[in-house]
Amino acid sequence: MEKKLRSGYTTGACAAAGVKAALLYEAGESWQVVELTALDGTKLTIPVKDVRETDDGLQAEVVKFSGDDPDITNGVSVFTLTRHLTGQKPEVIFKAGKGIGMVTKPGLSLPVGEPSINPGPRQLIRNAVADVLGREDVPLEVTISIPAGVELARQTLNPILGVEGGISVIGTTGVLRPMSEEGFKNSLVPQIDVARAAGFRELIFVPGKIGERIATAWKLPQEAMVQTSNFIGFMLDAAAERQIDKVLLFGHIGKLSKVAAGVFYTHNRIADGRLETMAAYAAAAGLSQDKVKELLAANTTEDALVILEQAGLKETVCRTLAMRASARAERYLFGKMKVGTVMVTLTGELLGMDDTAREIGEALGWKIPE
């Protein structure tokens, strides 16, 4: 029998629960367990660890529960400090405490200078205020803190997206369902929006850290780099929808040779035809049958490159692979966008690129090693 995965609640729902608990405490009502209605209508029951009075307001603590989702914030404490304001506009004001980042780049759902408390959690908190006070438009200040967020932010895309100082309070509804592939893909897309808002219409797609490290060493602008993970096709579609002009695929041959074969979801358990693709183009370039068999038996693409080099075909095959990756990507997009490809080794050796890649790279000011 298939195990049913448990859902949890987002950091935004934790903050909303903390605010509601503080207001219930203030009203002399039970606050230890809070009921919330998520923005999609789901009913949430959230335990509250603590509510206490401080000189600055009512502080509540809620411990994040992620269910069976592998969320890095599972088990961390989300603190809210709720304070009534006088002489202010009737609205909830949001502040960032320790561990909550600030938005420093345009292109996200919040303006520059705002605490990275996303629109969904903000509305959930307003709804929680209305549950207790009868209306959401009251002069209230809510400061959210996640002390562990200072360190956790290093495991997120926040530094790339321009959220500095901590993590974001996220959640579109308040319900945290076990992370779907779709959810992870969608979490990558804001990188494109941030790069576009910074003025870049030609982007660099790096499937992993290898490509990012080498592209950075070549002086390509980090502001134009977008991490795609294995979802190259999905991210190409997202870029085309946002009317990006050109994309430079920049990464290790092991990943991008799959694109040359028309594979746009490159996880090795889904598609691992790297050696077969290299062998096919090597055979077309004249590699002997015995050497093709040897290449197919190689442990890694780096080992396969040694065989191509010994045969004097490494440069030819790698350039062809780069050209084919770009051609397949453009075909995948039905010609909506120009794509160039750069393939490198683990150590940063340039293996092959096409003319579009050189054009994009030079426009972005790269310094290609001789």
Rank of each mutant, 00 (worst) to 15 (best):
L249H: 06
Q191P: 08
V169Y: 05
I214K: 02
G171K: 01
R269I: 14
I232M: 11
S180C: 07
R177H: 10
G171T: 05
G208M: 05
V206Y: 00
T156Y: 09
L203A: 10
E241D: 15
H267Y: 13
H252D: 10
F200L: 00
P147W: 06
I192Q: 08
T173F: 00
G251W: 03
E141T: 06
P190K: 11
V194G: 09
Q222F: 09
P159N: 07
A260M: 02
A261R: 14
R269H: 15
V189D: 03
N186Y: 12
D237E: 15
N230A: 02
I146H: 04
E141S: 09
W218F: 15
A224V: 06
P178I: 11
L152N: 03
G162T: 04
E202G: 06
F234C: 10
L176I: 05
M225R: 00
D193R: 06
F264E: 01
S180P: 01
S257D: 07
I244L: 09
R242N: 07
W218H: 13
I144G: 06
R177E: 15
V226E: 03
Q243Y: 12
R242E: 09
F205W: 03
Q191H: 11
W218K: 11
L152P: 00
G254M: 09
F200N: 07
P147C: 01
K258S: 02
R201Y: 14
L157H: 08
M225W: 07
I170V: 15
D193F: 01
A239I: 07
T156R: 01
F184H: 11
G171F: 11
T156E: 00
E241G: 10
G254V: 05
